[in-house]
Structures are given as structure tokens and as C-alpha cells.
């Protein structure tokens, strides 16, 4: 059979090519796991879970990709126009078409189930460790449209994150209701390890997006809304991130760093910050009093003199 021999050879060639391509793709995927998987994870358990979910989706995706590209490549090589070839005049195959529709649906059902199974650990934080920083019961945010994560015991260190062009401001909780004397910081968010941190995310001006890749996904800061996220860092370290929603010309420079320190160290940092802020508040209070005294003195010669020089200039 002379015509059969070249055909077999061609088939072998096509199959070899296909196998080589598949192998190359799988190897490449393995070798470049770094290339195809997020750099995030490792910082907080929710980010780790998102990474796992990503890898599961990736595994399914690689199978679909290799399958479809393989069949495409095979049909291009196998069914290229040749002298004696006659195209088959097929217009469809109902059973096959229903089959692949259900197949595609099946894959997506599996992905949906996997997502639902993993969702709980991504959305809901665990309790703080026993040797973590002391936490408070987190209050319900009124009229929030977003899901508010809370640990089983309802206690966490809740920090307010406020996005403003082009910096992040953090307000730490304290014992009293007066928010003016709370400890705050810009850009660098210092947190204790082994402690569940919940974030209440707000925006001052335009839409921003809070994102520290190692500590979980993004949460948009939208004016007039409150958004939430959480993380829990086990070991000291620092994690960088930046605003992920276009907020203006310096959007690229709106960076944030989370620095996780031992609970004891955090306690002393908080105390020193508190002293600093109290001192500043006191100084500001003094200045205000002096100013109002000056105003009360009315025809203060020194004051009017200043005004005259200002006008003269």
C-alpha cells in the first residue's frame, strides 16, 4: 500500500509535533511557575488562599488551552489542502455540539464550586492568636453595602484607612469616643503580628483602591462608601503595595507599606506615637488659645501694626 505509508508517516509527524508542543507547554508552565502565578501570598492567609484558587483555575485553563490549541494545530496540519484531498461536506453534528456545550458548562460548574468552597476562608478572618495584640469588639458599620468581615469571636484590631490624593492615612482605635486624639499615620501602616487586623476603607476625594498584594486582594476606597478587608500577619516583615485605581497625575506615587512588628514592639510604637500626637495637640491647643486671646484684646497695637505692614507690602 503505497499511499498509506506516507499518510502514516505524516500522522506520526503530526502527533509527534503535537506531543512535543504539549510537553513544551507543560514544562514551560512548570518551570515558569513564577511567570504564571502571582508574586503575592506568604503574607497573610487570605492572600494565600486566593493564590491557591488562582492556581486551581490555572490548572483547568492549561488543560483547556492545550486541548483546543492542540486540536486546532492538528487540523491545520492534517487537513491542509493537498492534491487528492476532498473536503467533507459536514454541516454539523447535534450530539457533538450538545456534548461540548455541556462540557464547557461542566468545567465552569466545577470552577464555581471550588470558588464557593474556598470563599469562606478568603472572606472571613480567623481569631487573633493568644499572644497577639489585645483586640476590641469591632463595631457594625451602619448602612454598609459591602460585606463586613469579622472573626468568629468578633474581636480584631480595626484600623481606618483613608485614601486621599496621593497618600494613605491610617487611624488607629483608642479607648475614648473622641477621634481627634487617635493615633494616626501616613503611608506606612504599622501593625502587630499574630493579630487579626480589619480595615475600614474610605476615600476623601476621588476613588482609590487599597492593595497590598501579599496581604490580600483590592478593596476600592469610594467617597461616600465604606469598604472592608482584613489580614493577619504571622511573622514580622514589610509588605509594599500601591493605589490601584486611577486617582490623578500622581496615582503611580500613591504607595503604601505595611510593617508588621511583634505585639510588644507595636505597643511601644503606639505609645510613643500617642505621646507625640498628644504633645502636638497640646501645642496646637495652646496656640489657638493665644490667638483667641489676641483677638479678644481687640485694638492690639502689635496686631494692627502687622496688618499695616501687610497692607504696605
Amino acid at each position: 500500500m503505497t499511499p498509506a505509508a506516507p499518510r502514516t508517516r505524516r500522522r506520526v509527524f503530526a502527533l509527534t509535533l503535537l506531543a512535543a508542543l504539549t510537553a513544551a507547554l507543560v514544562l514551560a508552565a512548570g518551570a515558569s511557575a513564577d511567570l504564571l502565578t502571582p508574586e503575592s501570598g506568604g503574607g497573610s492567609v487570605n492572600a494565600e488562599n486566593v493564590d491557591t484558587l488562582y492556581k486551581l483555575v490555572l490548572a483547568v485553563a492549561v488543560v483547556v488551552f492545550v486541548g483546543v490549541e492542540g486540536v486546532l494545530l492538528y487540523s491545520l496540519i492534517r487537513f491542509r489542502a493537498r492534491k487528492d484531498a476532498v473536503p467533507a461536506q459536514i454541516r454539523g453534528n447535534t450530539r457533538l455540539e450538545i456534548g461540548w456545550t455541556l462540557g464547557a458548562a461542566g468545567i465552569l460548574v466545577i470552577l464555581a464550586i471550588v470558588t464557593f468552597v474556598m470563599l469562606d476562608d478568603i472572606r472571613n478572618p480567623p481569631n487573633s492568636d493568644a499572644d497577639g495584640f489585645p483586640t476590641q469588639r469591632i463595631a457594625n458599620v451602619e448602612n454598609a453595602t459591602a460585606y463586613q468581615p469579622r472573626p468568629p469571636n468578633g474581636r480584631a484590631l480595626n484600623i481606618e484607612v483613608n485614601g486621599q490624593r496621593y497618600i494613605w492615612r491610617y487611624t488607629y482605635p483608642d479607648a475614648d469616643d473622641n477621634v481627634l486624639n487617635n493615633v494616626f499615620n501616613y503611608e506606612t501602616l504599622v501593625v502587630p503580628t499574630k493579630t487579626t487586623i480589619t480595615l475600614t476603607i474610605k476615600a476623601q476625594d476621588v476613588v482609590h483602591s487599597w492593595w497590598i498584594p501579599d496581604l490580600g486582594g483590592k478593596a476600592d476606597a469610594v467617597p461616600g462608601h465604606t469598604n472592608f478587608t482584613w489580614f493577619k500577619v504571622q511573622r514580622p516583615g514589610s509588605f509594599r503595595g500601591q493605589c490601584a485605581e486611577l486617582c490623578g497625575r500622581n496615582h503611580a506615587d500613591m504607595v503604601a507599606t505595611v510593617v508588621a512588628v511583634e505585639p510588644a514592639e507595636f505597643k511601644s510604637w503606639l505609645a510613643s506615637k500617642k505621646r507625640e500626637i498628644d504633645a502636638n495637640n497640646k501645642a496646637a491647643q495652646q496656640r489657638r488659645e493665644e490667638e483667641s486671646e489676641e483677638l479678644r484684646e481687640g485694638a492690639n497695637p502689635r496686631g494692627s501694626g502687622n496688618a499695616e505692614t501687610a497692607e504696605g507690602e
Binding site: 492572600a47 483555575v57 488551552f65 478593596a219 490601584a244
Partner: peptide, 18 residues
């Protein structure tokens, strides 16, 4: 296929706007 990645919303929280 990458559209399916982005439809899985917890994954999208990481990939969105990147």
C-alpha cells in the same frame, strides 16, 4: 480563558486593575 480567571471574583480582587 483569562476572562474566566477575572470572573472568579476572589481572584479578580488580586488581578483587577493590574
Amino acid at each position: 480563558i483569562t476572562g474566566v480567571f477575572l470572573a472568579v471574583f476572589p481572584v479578580d480582587w488580586q488581578l483587577h486593575d493590574t
